[in-house]
Design a protein around this nucleic acid. Structure first.
Lengths: 166, 166
DNA sequence: AGGCTTCGGTTCAATAGTTGAACTGACTAG
DNA sequence: CTAGTCAGTTCAACTATTGAACCGAAGCCT
């Protein structure tokens, strides 16, 4: 019996979590993005058990969000870098960080991001159609082409078909 | 010793994960947002063990992202609803879902979100200063007021002080 | 009144994952 | 030829997850 896999759920959130939903994975990605790319640096920065880091890195490589690159030969040494999919995840992690800044960091943000335009304001999640910031209450949902009634969306399918419940 | 807590790390991403970083928690929040608010509905939709759901709901209530509300008396029955902090998390979950749509759902999105403006396009994460979509390479970082050198940011502090490494 | 059903959990034993310390192996520098 | 660096692996103790069974309060049916 393994920890339940989300890979087969017909939900993109579940599939995303299958790749980066483990306890340490988002922090590993943060560190790699910030420039800590070597095994030893990650161990030292995070205090993560070495066995677990090795397993997580393998999983992230398998999930194609990072890749293992040789940075020197003799002795052969490797480091980890974000792939394109991994870089595409950075804004999401930044948005989650901003949430933590808003709701969990009364003493101020520990890390401040600067956009190349000079702004240090938190990111905004906006509708690509109208440009307005997205607010939970402004959303509605319908079933897409990949929908199914199965574990993880056993009732969701019905809720969506019924025009939603919210 | 239990699973390492991220609560004391000086990183808002770690603090966010402390609340919603567990394996099932984001899916539970998704379901509650979509209208599945009762214990039994969540069990049926997700196939999550009842003991685990009870523990996760308690933790999410403790983390102030959901609240337990009585929806009928005699017999007393409760449901779970997003708090303001929980609703503020919805756009982030939507962004993570969109990432899964882009990179993990070759057959098309299982769930399609509609903004009240009519658009069904995925959300965009933009810089609140200039309005441009945020791309990993356009970011730089510096230490904020809450920074510290401790587990979770043992090396990060130095990297930020040195003007970054990226 | 007595029995069946619903809802929202709790309990439990088996299994799987996490932890931290110690160890390994390839290689280099001195 | 000894010590050191880096990137892991191994291992035993401990925790967490799983899924099935059980529980209790209350309403409904006859």
């Amino acid at each position: 019996m393994r920890q339940t896999s989300f890979a087969d759920m017909h939900c993109s959130l579940a599939r995303s979590l299958e790749v980066i939903g483990d306890w340490w994975s988002p922090l590993i990605l943060r560190d790699i993005h910030l420039g800590l790319r070597r095994f030893g640096e990650l161990v030292e920065d995070l205090g993560i058990p070495r066995a677990l880091l090795a397993a997580r890195l393998d999983a992230l490589v398998g999930g194609a969000v990072i890749e293992k690159v040789e940075y020197q030969q003799r002795p052969s040494r490797h480091e980890y870098r974000l792939t394109e999919a991994g870089r595409d995840l950075v804004p999401v992690l930044l948005a989650l960080t901003a949430w933590g800044d808003r709701w969990r960091s009364p003493d101020g943000a520990p890390i401040v991001a600067h956009h190349r335009c000079g702004a240090t304001t938190p990111p905004a999640i906006v509708c690509a159609g109208c440009g307005e910031p997205i607010v939970a209450g402004d959303l509605d949902y319908s079933a897409g082409p990949g929908a199914a009634t199965a574990r993880g969306t056993q009732l969701i399918a019905g809720v969506l078909a019924g025009g939603g419940r919210r």
